[in-house]
Computed example of a mutant assay.
Amino acid sequence: MSAVRRARDERLTNALDQNARDLLRYLERRVGSNDAPDALSDTMIAAWKGAARVPTNPVEARMWLFGIARNVVLNHSRGERRRSRLAERLRESVGVLPPNNDAAAGLDVLDAIQRLDPDLAEVIRAVHWDGFSLAEISQYLGLPASTVRSRYHRAKRELAHVLGSQVELIQ
């Protein structure tokens, strides 16, 4: 094994060791505690497959890992939507009515966030659940900081509109 490959593998191992707990919490908040360990495993596998691209700076390596985790979450969400559509088609084909989710009284914050455009919801979750700065979010999403700032402000406006003046989202 070459010295370059050894150094790269060591950087990735260190980045994974230092960030695994935070990655797991990030994933738990997005896919649930039951699916989070599998999502973390998928994140680590993807990181090892892309090990040649691991940044040398530890902060950049952290954001790179969170970018991979976000892609795992997006894949998971697509799979959930496919399963949900399949379940709906099955219910319709056998004549079973879908559950009535509208029976819940009022909107809570989680429901309001889920109703946001996924790109806006990701920024809100990253700031308020994960404690990332807008600059860090821009790095792990691979977007200009101005785009992340505008998404954050747009998401806050939409949430304030949905939730009314009862919830103060501005930090």
Rank of each mutant, 00 (worst) to 15 (best):
S33N: 08
N34T: 05
D35F: 11
D35H: 10
D35G: 00
A36I: 06
P37R: 13
P37E: 07
P37I: 09
D38P: 06
A39Y: 04
A39P: 02
A39E: 03
L40A: 01
L40M: 07
L40K: 04
L40G: 01
L40C: 04
L40I: 05
T43V: 00
T43P: 03
T43H: 06
T43C: 06
M44T: 01
M44S: 09
M44R: 05
M44C: 06
M44P: 00
I45E: 13
I45H: 02
A46R: 12
A46M: 07
A46P: 01
A46V: 05
A47E: 03
A47R: 01
A47V: 04
W48R: 12
W48K: 12
K49C: 03
K49E: 13
G50L: 14
G50E: 12
G50K: 15
G50R: 15
G50V: 06
A51W: 04
A51G: 11
A52I: 07
A52Y: 11
A52T: 09
R53K: 14
V54N: 05
V54E: 02
V54P: 02
P55K: 01
P55W: 01
T56A: 14
T56V: 07
T56L: 08
N57H: 12
N57G: 09
N57Q: 08
P58I: 01
P58Y: 09
V59Q: 14
V59S: 15
V59P: 02
V59L: 14
E60W: 11
R62N: 06
R62A: 12
R62T: 03
R62W: 08
R62H: 08
M63F: 11
M63V: 04
W64L: 09
L65N: 03
L65C: 04
L65R: 03
F66A: 02
G67W: 01
G67P: 14
G67V: 02
G67C: 04
I68W: 01
I68N: 00
A69K: 02
A69C: 05
A69G: 03
R70L: 06
N71W: 13
V72M: 00
V73R: 02
V73F: 00
V73M: 04
V73S: 03
L74R: 15
N75K: 09
H76P: 00
H76K: 04
H76G: 02
S77F: 06
S77D: 13
S77A: 14
S77I: 11
R78Q: 12
R78L: 06
R78C: 08
G79L: 08
G79V: 06
E80L: 12
E80C: 09
R81D: 08
R81F: 07
R81I: 14
R82Y: 13
R83T: 00
R83M: 10
R83K: 15
S84W: 15
S84H: 15
S84I: 13
S84Y: 15
S84T: 10
S84C: 11
R85A: 11
R85P: 03
L86C: 05
L86A: 10
A87S: 13
E88A: 12
E88K: 15
E88W: 15
R89I: 06
L90P: 00
L90R: 12
R91G: 03
R91E: 15
E92Q: 12
E92V: 00
E92W: 08
S93Y: 08
V94W: 05
V94N: 09
V94L: 13
V94D: 10
V94A: 03
V94T: 15
G95C: 07
G95A: 03
G95M: 04
V96K: 11
V96Q: 10
L97S: 11
L97A: 12
